[in-house]
Amino acid sequence: MKIIVLVKEVPDTYGDRKLNLETGLADREASEAVIDEIGERALELALTHADANDGTEITVLSLAPEGATARIRKGLAMGAGSAIHVSDEALRGADLGLTAETLAAAIRRVEFDLVITGNVSTDGSGGMIPAMLAELLDVPLATGLSSVAISDGAVSGTRRVESGVQKVSANLPAVISITEALPGPRFPNFKGIMAAKKKPLEMLTLADLGITADNPDAARSIMLTVAEKPPRAAGVKIIDEGDAGEKLADFLVENRLA
């Protein structure tokens, strides 16, 4: 079975994340870049399957600036067999549509049985790439899975929606996305890190994929304005002297919140 896992380089949520107020793009200097944790969980799912099933091939795929190769290599160190890094100056500020077209083109170049992604990234929080990929690749889509079973030719799992929980399944090839309910990622060990250096990592550009960033037939989402919100100011802070509960009740009632 061939599994492709999408990983994304994002600004570390433990640091200050900044947008460039002139370009509207993420200020990559402002914070450390890391692989989004949900993508690592997606990879963990694939690795767990590979541990129990010989002949499982795992490729990590990422669309990211040139400098992201080191982060993508972490996926190889965790245990993926190969990596594809799509990078192109023309992808700077790419919207979801262009991102999905590019990823779909990269996926089409290799055979696959299953594409696994995280449900939403911590930076864009759109959660739409899996759906776009499924449509472009014309394969079934099962998103937001909080448990997953992969078998020969099919994938199934549980999917929480507003009114309840669905049990869903799809024939392979398919695209799935997973939630944080799935197990966290393993740490790369020394052997994995050394092995990663010898594993194939393919660099691709838009030209390699036959994609033009400024295709006039596709509408693109553009950012019109970006502004920094003034930081939220702290209000009153009292130290409990035995009556803080009463005072807080007064405050809530005065503000019509109780």
């Binding site: 449900n119 959660g127 759906a131 776009m132 449509e135 889509l141 999917r159 989402s221």
Partner: peptide, 21 residues
Amino acid sequence: SLNGRDLAGRYAARSRAAVSV
């Protein structure tokens, strides 16, 4: 929502419309 995201993503990819998420 989860279903809303799937719908918007698939529709946008199909019709080449732009999405604002």
